[in-house]
């Protein structure tokens, strides 16, 4: 019995030794030289592989950072501390990506829509858009079938009442959703902007009104009352995101948008949670 045990131990031991030697040999001979800094940076990066930096995932970005092609700050997801850590480790300038955030420029949830469409087909924004389908009459607004929500690597988008809503605290501004949206409703805006125009339709006011209660009618009230912060292009008001200081909640109150297309981001979210106080007057 004891002999058997000894034999087994010996055989396994020898086997392990021989194989270990072989592996060690090949590891030495066929070693691929990698920059250890790439690994280090990859570890410091968030690892979401969102592509927000324009590279194919975090390790690709790490390579470009190490090679000096991109500053570490170009990662939209990392916090300031993380970026500083990477910059310190590499001894480079952290650089700054303008921290951005996604905004769904549409306020028309299914209750705000005047004209609904009986759409029958694939429940996917791109497919519906191809035949100008979708549940709502507006051809420029959010379709609300959640293609962006499905793609968001951070789970920051939720569909409420057929409208995509960005949860600000989760969004890092990687831009995946904006690339997916077939109607280009989602825009990346500077993070410090708290006020947005929630309408994307360039149509004339009455046309929009036919479709939606909360569309921007292009009445120019905002432009008149705060010309340095809001611009009306065609029939659609836009927030001037270059403006310094950016528009605030006070500006929104001062303007008092007649349809409620001009809102702060937090209120956009609150409307979707059926707060009657913020429903359209």
């Amino acid at each position: 019995m004891i002999q058997l045990v000894i034999a087994a131990v010996l055989i396994m031991g020898c086997l392990g030794l021989v194989l270990g030697l072989v592996i060690g040999f090949f590891a030495k001979v066929f070693k691929v030289e990698t920059d250890p800094r790439i690994e280090l940076v990859t570890e410091l990066l968030p690892g979401a592989n969102c592509g927000g930096c324009g590279k194919a995932g975090c390790s690709d970005f790490a390579k470009s950072v190490v090679n000096g092609e991109n500053p570490p700050g170009k990662c939209p997801v990392s916090s300031k501390e993380q970026i500083t850590a990477i910059a310190m480790a590499l001894g480079v300038d952290p650089g700054s990506a303008f921290p951005r955030r996604a905004v769904v420029r549409c306020g028309g949830d299914i209750h705000q829509v005047n004209r609904k469409i009986n759409y029958n087909g694939v429940l996917d924004c791109a497919s519906a858009n191809l035949i100008s389908g979708g549940p709502k009459g507006c051809r420029y607004g959010c379709i609300g079938m959640g293609s962006c929500a499905a793609k968001c690597p951070f789970g920051a988008i939720e569909i409420i009442n057929n409208l995509a809503v960005v949860h600000e605290e989760l969004c890092v501004g990687c831009g995946t959703c904006a690339a997916v949206c077939p109607r280009g409703v989602i825009e990346l805006v500077p993070m410090n902007s708290r006020v947005h125009v929630y309408c994307n339709s360039p149509e004339k006011g009455p046309e929009k009104r036919k479709n939606c209660k909360v569309s921007c009618l292009g009445c120019r009230k905002c432009e008149r009352l705060a010309p340095e912060k809001f611009k009306v292009e065609g029939f659609l008001a836009r927030v001037d995101y270059e403006a310094d200081p950016p528009p605030t909640e006070e500006d929104v109150e001062k303007v008092g948008c007649p349809t409620g297309a001009l809102l702060t981001a937090s209120r956009h979210y609150e409307i979707e949670t059926f707060d009657p106080e913020f429903s359209i007057k």
Partner: peptide, 13 residues
Amino acid sequence: RPLVQHHRRAKAE
């Protein structure tokens, strides 16, 4: 199954 719509989507993409 909405096969044609799928194919349209793929072609557009």
